[in-house]
């Protein structure tokens, strides 16, 4: 087959909703887009462990401690599946981590915000994992097989995470006045950053069009963001908290809630590395990696010795 017919057969599979598998032909750009997206997703899982791990040792009850620990551990597991899925595209986990540590690869900006009260554990589970689910459920049908299969597992666990976050918020909202205030404060701080998780406006999103054509993405950033707002406003009402944006109003004509324009300068500023915790999060990951170097070297040396012994 010629290059042209390879590409035609690739697009035909995409159009017929046949999943692309690692051994199949794929255009370089498709491979690159997927590596970028999956590794960014994997990095988000492991950097995302940090803001929540921040509260494990201070969780207010033993049950909350155990549930939060299990939850953060799940995020690590998601990182593992996703790194493995990306490895099928011809990149190693070490290479991807190198890209993270040198700043060449990004992770979700949401994790560059600080977790300053216990209520942030509720807000993250509810809003951040909730937004993640909305982004990720369509990815269970994404065109690349290993990514789609990893996402099926990830989504199952994420919905449990969202419930635990919402349950924390519910306990606080139904608690004492100061607990309710804590919940409101967390909602107010996490609302806009959570909406920004869906990415830039469609009009300026550099990757959306091609990703839609290749069925890596199935809905645009704005579509998903609107869906999230519509669902979440109802949940805020159930909690009995104030809406975090005075401009949230039902629009009969659109059949959706209207809300304020997001502060995109802030978004790009955090993406560029100037968020409140960008430097700290990356430094923590780099330190963990560097501190662990001698451990990984010892483990490989030991494995090598065992292999030699077995061969002898």
């Amino acid at each position: 087959m010629t290059q042209v017919s390879f590409e035609a057969s690739f697009q035909k599979k995409i159009d017929e909703e046949i999943m692309i598998e690692p051994q199949d032909y794929m255009p370089d750009e498709y491979r690159k887009t997927l590596i970028r997206q999956i590794s960014q997703h994997a990095h988000s899982e492991i950097v995302g462990m940090l803001p929540e791990a921040n509260w494990i040792t201070r969780a207010p009850s033993l049950r909350r401690k155990a549930v939060l620990l299990a939850k953060v551990q799940d995020e690590g597991g998601h990182g593992l599946y996703l790194y493995s899925a990306a490895e099928t595209l011809g990149i190693t986990r070490d290479q991807m981590l190198h890209q993270l540590h040198t700043g060449a690869a990004k992770y979700s900006s949401i994790f560059n915000y600080p977790t300053i009260t216990w209520a942030d554990m509720g807000a993250i589970g509810w809003l951040v994992d909730g937004a993640a689910i909305m982004n990720q459920v369509p990815l269970c049908r994404t065109s690349y097989g290993p990514y789609a299969r990893a996402m099926v597992r990830v989504c199952k666990e994420e919905s449990f995470h969202q419930r635990q976050g919402y349950e924390i918020m519910l306990s606080l909202a139904k608690g004492t006045p100061v607990q309710k205030q804590m919940a409101q404060d967390a909602l107010n701080r996490w609302w806009a950053p959570a909406l920004m998780m869906f990415g830039p406006l469609d009009a300026v999103s550099p990757n959306t069009a091609k990703s839609m054509e290749w069925r890596i993405k199935r809905f645009t950033n704005d579509e998903l963001r609107q869906r999230f707002i519509d669902v979440t406003v109802e949940q805020i009402r159930i909690l009995g908290l104030e809406l975090p944006d005075a401009n949230i109003k039902w629009n009969e004509e659109r059949g959706h809630y209207d809300s304020s324009e997001l502060n995109w300068d802030e978004f790009w500023n955090v993406v560029k590395g100037n968020g409140p915790c960008n430097k700290e999060r990356l430094a923590t990951r780099v330190k963990a990696w560097e501190d662990g170097a001698w451990v990984r070297e010892a483990a490989s040396a030991y494995a090598e010795k065992r292999k030699t012994k077995k061969a002898a």
Partner: peptide, 22 residues
């Protein structure tokens, strides 16, 4: 052990350690 969460030398061991902690 829970204080290791997110800071292990390799992801698999991070998970193993939190398992024990749990």
């Amino acid at each position: 052990l829970a204080a290791w969460c997110g800071k292990g030398p390799v992801l698999e061991q991070d998970i193993a350690l939190t398992n024990i902690s749990l």
